[in-house]
Amino acid sequence: MAPGQKLYPRGTVKKIIKAHSNCNVSKNVDVTIFLDYVLFMQTLMKEAAIESKQGGERGITARSVRKVTEKTLAKFKG
């Protein structure tokens, strides 16, 4: 399940969150953030796959992803 062996760019995640929150980010939060992001991606892709299957598309398309994005984001609203 672990997506690949390569680590994600921790600094990038940290920068993104810092820019969005205008707060400092403590040392290891980015790991949890990335974990949350992984969960988000999982949900997103699952929903997109379902959506694309319902729409009779082959594979995951941008349309299905876009359709599902809002729902999934709402699900991950804190």
Partner: peptide, 29 residues
Amino acid sequence: SKGKISPDALKAIMQASDWFFEQLGDDLQ
């Protein structure tokens, strides 16, 4: 589904993840 993701879909996913991080940052803040 198959693991193939079209560039368009990737763009949409990138957009979604951008929004996700924005929302996450807001919430954390």
